[in-house]
Simulated assay, not measured.
Amino acid sequence: MNLPLLIKKNNALVDGNLPDRKVLANKLVNVLYSSYEREGNEFSITIPDLLRSLNMASDSGNNRKKIKEVIKFLQYPIELRDFEYKGKGIEWLSAPFLSRAKIEKGNSTLIHFRLDDELIAGLKQKEQYTIIDLNISNKFHSKYGIVIWEIYLRYKNQSRSGVPENWTYQTFTLEELNKKFGTKFKHNSKMLEGINRGLKEIKKITGKDIKVNFLSEKREFGFFWEKEKEIPKYLKTEKNFIAYIRKNKVNEDLYDDGKLCLSVSEKGRLYDKNTLQEYNKDDALVVWQKLYEKAKKGELSL
């Protein structure tokens, strides 16, 4: 079952600014966040597995060195904004993404990670998140491409005035974009050069056509794109999708590739009709998420 590897990245982290915007740093944040979603704020990953997750095929000394260098960057403070902690609104927080990364003697291929406790308080707020497919994000080779792609995913269907109903946009000042890209440009033209390289990469990888204009009257960069088409209510959230399936598709074939035939029982549990084996809670969460993404792409008959 060839399905995307998805993460629900909290918008506080999407909106935040990494101290180093090398594309590898951004990819590593996404991979570690994926592990956090499955295992909590402490977890371990072998170096070969980490390299594969980052699309770095060669387990060479040079690639291991790059990983360790990027890990150090993620231990510098990251700026996050607009979330709640213990009932109070947090406008701004500066904290390290990683509070610890270590390799113990006797097992030099295993890295033990711990994410910052206070940062996790913000990331646990799942009401506002951006769904990111790591298989797509890991194809980017420029920081401009991957950062603008996440901006698009964050705001892709926002309602905006002043543009046709099927279009939307998001604006940033030069200072804001310098923080997002880790650059120090003083002239708009230089920033536009980098942005346009990123937009070409996005078009090549995803097919999405994003336009950029410098809005001189506001002294802001505007990113414009066409909204995704309106989807049925039951596809607007994963929760709605699961409720719809449990109510309307009991014991029907949801996905069948000849080897695996997924269905949902009268009790609302996912199972394989070929083996009659039910999925446990953790596995079911992953499969539901992947079925939801396939449904949104029109790859399931509902």
Rank of each mutant, 00 (worst) to 15 (best):
N2V: 12
L3Y: 13
L5A: 14
L6Y: 07
I7K: 11
N11H: 07
P19S: 02
D20K: 06
R21A: 15
K22Y: 13
L28C: 10
N30W: 14
Y33T: 11
S35V: 12
E37R: 09
F43P: 04
S44E: 15
P48E: 07
D49T: 14
D49L: 09
L51E: 07
R52N: 12
R52S: 11
R52D: 13
L54E: 08
G61Q: 08
N63F: 01
K65S: 14
L74A: 08
P77V: 02
R81C: 05
R81K: 08
E84M: 08
Y85Q: 10
K88S: 15
W92K: 15
P96H: 05
F97I: 08
S99W: 00
S99F: 01
R100M: 04
R100G: 05
N107Y: 10
S108V: 14
I111E: 05
I111M: 06
R114F: 07
G122W: 03
K124S: 07
Y129N: 15
T130Y: 13
T130S: 13
I136N: 03
K139H: 09
H141N: 15
S142K: 01
K143N: 13
I146M: 03
E150Y: 06
I151P: 03
L153Q: 14
K156E: 06
S159T: 10
S159C: 13
P164Q: 00
P164V: 01
N166D: 14
W167K: 09
T168Q: 02
E175V: 06
N178K: 02
K180Y: 07
F181Q: 01
F181W: 04
T183G: 01
F185E: 03
N188A: 09
S189T: 10
K190P: 06
I195E: 00
N196I: 02
L199V: 04
E201Q: 11
K204A: 01
I205Q: 08
I210H: 09
I210D: 08
N213Y: 10
E217Q: 05
K218L: 04
K218F: 04
R219P: 02
F223W: 01
E226I: 12
E226D: 03
K229T: 12
E230N: 08
K233F: 11
K236P: 02
E238M: 09
F241N: 05
A243C: 10
Y244S: 02
Y244V: 05
R246Q: 15
R246I: 00
R246L: 06
K247Q: 13
K247A: 09
D253T: 13
Y255P: 07
G258W: 05
K259V: 11
V264I: 11
K267A: 15
K267S: 14
L270C: 05
D272L: 08
Q277Y: 08
Y279D: 06
Y279H: 08
N280M: 10
N280C: 04
V287A: 03
V287C: 03
W288S: 05
K290N: 12
L291S: 02
Y292N: 01
K294P: 07
K296R: 15
K296T: 07
K296Q: 11
K297T: 02
G298D: 03
S301W: 12
L302S: 03
